[in-house]
Design a protein around this nucleic acid. Structure first.
Lengths: 128, 128
DNA sequence: CTCGTTTAATTACACGCGTAATCTTTATTG
DNA sequence: CAATAAAGATTACGCGTGTAATTAAACGAG
């Protein structure tokens, strides 16, 4: 099995989010995109980029004097890893308790509920 | 506002799980309960217990020469913290994408689906 | 009362993370 | 070509965590 999960930290995921929205991007742009929401220093962002490179979560192609970065780790894949981790760590691997939990504790908008219902219909549809 | 969230680490949560199943318990029992699933040394477990004490996640009452530990942080509360954290960090705070994700990527048992449907019915019931 | 044993408290230590600062290389400009 | 500026690479540093080992205290056995 080829792909062992790439673990990225919280701060690193913020950088990935920027790349998931658009790629490739130069570090300058990534720095700019993160400045407002996080207040991070340029140096900080570059450190995170390098760590992500080291982890194989992003790739870099040289473009003149700078690099252009692209995500290698896909957002979906990361979401899945994180979800599974929560499920296993916190809910004993069982989906129903998690969902029950959300229905009790998270305020679901009417739209959420409608969407949920559609999802379930679709799932049941596919089953039979 | 009294309760700022108590952050507990992964290893610490394993100790809490033991206490959530039954409390109060002496460290000896907790050590014993964790030995098989984790292989942790007695010293390790005691360290974790002390850290949890420091964080206010458990309480200890002296019982002769030993302490009996009880959880202060409740399981529900912790699950909620962790769920919210996943939701915010990974799914932009929106429930529907999380659920969509689960429906696509996690194998939901027939029972899961049935439960989900019941949950939704209940929610909609409460709304009108 | 002293020694050993059991339990608790203190200390250890490497690694990842958040957050940069410093050093180095490379391209630009006079 | 030499100095400067911009980008990248290396190094830093304190804190939490995983994982204990070491030290101290307290109680029971002689």
């Amino acid at each position: 099995m080829p792909n062992k999960p790439i673990a990225i930290s919280d701060a690193e995921s913020r950088v990935m989010e920027v790349l998931w929205q658009q790629a490739p991007q130069a570090s300058e742009d990534i720095v700019a995109a993160l400045l407002a929401p996080t207040g991070w220093h340029e140096k900080t962002v570059r450190t995170l980029l390098n760590r992500l490179l080291g982890k194989g979560a992003v790739s870099a192609q040289k473009d003149g004097r700078r690099y252009l970065y692209s995500p290698l780790l896909q957002r979906e894949q990361w979401q899945q890893q994180e979800s599974r981790s929560l499920l296993d760590r916190v809910f004993g691997g069982k989906v129903a308790p998690l969902l029950a939990h959300f229905s009790q504790h998270e305020k679901l908008s009417t739209k959420d509920v409608a969407e949920l219902r559609k999802l379930i219909d679709a799932i049941e549809q596919k089953r039979r």
